[in-house]
Simulated scan of single mutants.
Amino acid sequence: MTTLAVVSAGLGEPSSSHLLADRLATAVANRIDVDTKVVHLRDLARDVADNLVTGFPGARLRRVVEDVVGADALIAVTPTFNASYSGLFKSFVDVLEPGSLVGKPVLIGATGGTERHSLVLDHALRPLFAYLRAIVLPTGVYAASSDWGAQAGLVERIDRAGAELADLLAGRAPAAPAAPYGDVVPFEQLLNGGRPTP
């Protein structure tokens, strides 16, 4: 069975980062059968810090790293701190061995207070995983506080991102989007007063 690792760096409980990570995992699981392993980094903060100081992971952190590295795909979600990913998120990534994410599909997500921080996906997360030579999916999902109330746009982004990852894991070509302007009146017809040109 396809395995999916879901890493959330949310610090609160409840956490909007955890919620976004769960919704993204559900969007994938609704399309293909996956064995999902969820990691809440807040529960591993001391283990990560100990590893950075000693250079050796404890047993619990080692199991989590093996789950993430051994998974067929990764969903990674972080809260936005100072216009970038959180320190805990980056510290966990630093624990991973160089080359351990090469070729792994990664769906990125982030949460924050306002829409102004949405570029964290493209100026922080995407370059980080590109440096690690992972395959970063085209659609990343950012959720501001206001997105949770409206939900319509957020649900659409989550579904699109989940479909992209599911299609990649299933070996399917992504579905072509419907042409948004399929019923456009030709320019020549508009010049002819709306009547079809002879």
Rank of each mutant, 00 (worst) to 15 (best):
E115Y: 05
R116V: 13
L119V: 12
W148L: 10
L121A: 12
G153D: 07
Y131H: 14
T114Y: 02
H117F: 09
P138G: 09
H123I: 15
L132R: 06
V141N: 01
R133S: 14
T114N: 09
L137Q: 00
L132P: 00
H117P: 10
H123A: 11
A130V: 13
L119P: 02
S146G: 05
Q151Y: 05
H123D: 10
G140C: 08
R116L: 14
G113E: 12
L137Y: 01
L137I: 05
A150T: 06
L137A: 04
P127C: 04
V155W: 03
D122H: 12
E115S: 12
G149Y: 00
G112L: 08
V155H: 00
S118C: 10
W148R: 03
V120Y: 09
G109L: 11
A152S: 10
A152G: 04
V120E: 10
A134I: 04
L121D: 13
A130R: 13
A144D: 04
T111M: 10
A143G: 00
V141I: 03
L125I: 13
H123V: 15
P138L: 06
A152N: 04
R133G: 07
A150D: 11
T111Q: 10
A150R: 09
A134V: 03
S146T: 15
G113Q: 13
A130G: 12
A143W: 02
Y142I: 00
S145K: 10
D122P: 05
L128M: 15
V141H: 03
W148Y: 14
A124S: 15
I135Q: 08
D122A: 07
P138Y: 03
P138K: 13
G140I: 07
H123Q: 13
G149V: 02
V120M: 13
R133E: 15
T139A: 07
A144C: 04
T114F: 04
V155T: 13
L132M: 15
V136W: 05
L121Y: 11
R116F: 09
F129E: 07
F129T: 05
L119K: 03
E115W: 07
T111H: 09
H123F: 15
P127K: 05
L125M: 15
V141G: 03
A124T: 15
T111E: 07
T114E: 12
D147R: 04
G112Q: 10
S146M: 06
A143V: 00
G153W: 05
G149W: 01
V155D: 08
A144G: 13
H123M: 11
A143P: 00
S145P: 01
H117V: 09
S118G: 04
L121S: 13
A130W: 08
G140V: 07
L121H: 10
A124R: 11
V120F: 09
V120L: 12
F129W: 12
D122S: 13
Y142M: 02
V155A: 09
S146H: 09
A134F: 04
Q151E: 06
A144N: 04
V155E: 06
T111A: 09
T139S: 08
G140R: 06
P127H: 07
A110C: 11
G112I: 06
P138S: 14
A130M: 11
L132A: 14
L119H: 00
R116K: 15
L137K: 02
A152V: 08
L128Q: 07
R116H: 14
L121I: 14
V120P: 09
A130C: 07
D147W: 00
A110Q: 09
G149P: 02
G109Q: 12
T111F: 10
W148D: 01
S118H: 14
